[in-house]
C-alpha cells in the first residue's frame, strides 16, 4: 500500500487522441486521499474520457497516470492492481442483466478476490442495505427502477472495497424523481471519506460535497477551484458562459 501522503490519483501531462482528434490536452491533476472532485464541462470536453483513463477503460498516448503509487502502463499486472483499487459507476448502470441484484454484487468478489460465497453474500447484503435496496436482492436488474439500479451499481463497486470511486455522469440517465436517491447515496459515501472523482452536472451535489470543482472544455482543464469560489466568482469567460447555461 502506498503511504498516505502520496496522491490517490496523479495525472501528469496527459494527452490522448482519437485518430486526429485531440481529446485530452496536457491534463495535470493531483487528487489527495479522501478528496472529492467534481468534473464538469460541456459535452465532448473530454471529462468522461479523462476519468475512464484512470482505470484504463481508455488508453492514453502521452503523459503518465499514477493511481495509489501504481503507474498505468501496458503491464497487465499494474492494470489489474489499479482496477482493484478503483471502483466505477457508469451513466447507464451497466448491471449484468442475467444475474440477480445479489449475484451482481457477489460475482467480482468471488471470482476476482476468491472470497468464499457466503462471505461475499454477507458483504453484498451489507452494502445493499447501506444503499437501502437489500429487500430487492433477489430480483433481476430489469425488475427494479433506474434509481435502484444505479444504487445497486454503487453497491456492486463497493463490494470490491475500492479506495477510489469514479462516477461517470451517474444521474444523467435517470428520471428526475430518481436523481435524489442516487445523490443521497453518493453524499453518504463522501461523508465516509471515500476518494471520489465525479463527472456530473448536479451543481447542488458539487456545492455540498466537492473539495474542488474542475471545469473542462475542448480537452483542457480550464479552471479548478473550491466550489464556493468556482460558482460565485468564475475566472474564465468559458466557465462563466457554461455556468450561465446550466444554472
Amino acid at each position: 500500500m502506498a503511504e498516505d501522503n502520496t496522491p490517490a490519483v496523479l495525472l501528469k501531462n496527459l494527452n490522448k487522441w482519437y485518430g486526429e482528434f485531440h481529446v485530452l490536452r496536457n491534463i495535470n491533476l493531483s487528487v489527495k486521499r479522501g478528496e472529492k472532485i467534481v468534473v464538469c464541462g460541456p459535452s465532448g470536453s473530454g471529462k468522461s474520457t479523462m476519468i475512464r483513463c484512470i482505470n484504463r477503460l481508455e488508453e492514453h498516448q502521452e503523459g503518465s497516470i499514477t493511481v495509489d503509487g501504481i503507474e498505468l502502463t501496458d503491464n497487465l499486472k499494474n492494470i489489474d492492481a489499479v482496477r482493484a483499487e478503483v471502483g466505477m459507476v457508469f451513466q447507464h448502470f451497466n448491471l449484468f442483466p442475467h444475474l440477480t441484484v445479489l449475484e451482481n454484487c457477489t460475482l467480482a468478489p468471488i471470482w476476482v478476490k476468491k472470497m468464499p460465497r457466503k462471505e461475499a453474500e454477507e458483504k453484498a447484503m451489507y452494502f445493499l442495505d447501506r444503499v437501502r435496496i437489500a429487500n430487492q436482492a433477489h430480483k433481476y436488474p430489469g425488475q427494479v427502477s433506474g434509481g435502484q439500479q444505479q444504487r445497486v451499481a454503487i453497491a456492486r463497486s463497493l463490494c470490491m472495497s475500492p479506495r477510489i470511486m469514479l462516477f461517470d455522469e451517474p444521474t444523467s440517465a435517470l428520471d428526475p424523481e430518481m436523481v435524489k436517491e442516487v445523490l443521497d447515496t453518493m453524499v453518504m459515501l463522501a461523508k465516509e471519506g471515500m476518494t471520489m472523482l465525479c463527472v456530473t452536472h448536479e451543481m447542488g451535489f458539487a456545492k455540498a460535497v466537492a473539495d474542488r470543482v474542475i471545469f473542462m472544455d475542448k480537452g483542457e482543464i480550464v479552471e479548478e477551484n473550491e466550489p464556493e469560489e468556482f460558482f460565485s466568482n468564475p475566472q474564465s469567460p468559458r466557465t462563466r458562459t457554461f455556468l450561465e447555461q446550466i444554472l
Binding site: 482505470n55 477503460l57 482496477r83 460475482l107 467480482a108 476476482v112 463497486s157
Partner: peptide, 9 residues
Amino acid sequence: EAADALGLG
C-alpha cells in the same frame, strides 16, 4: 466495460 472495471480478466 463493467466487467473490466470490476477487474475480471
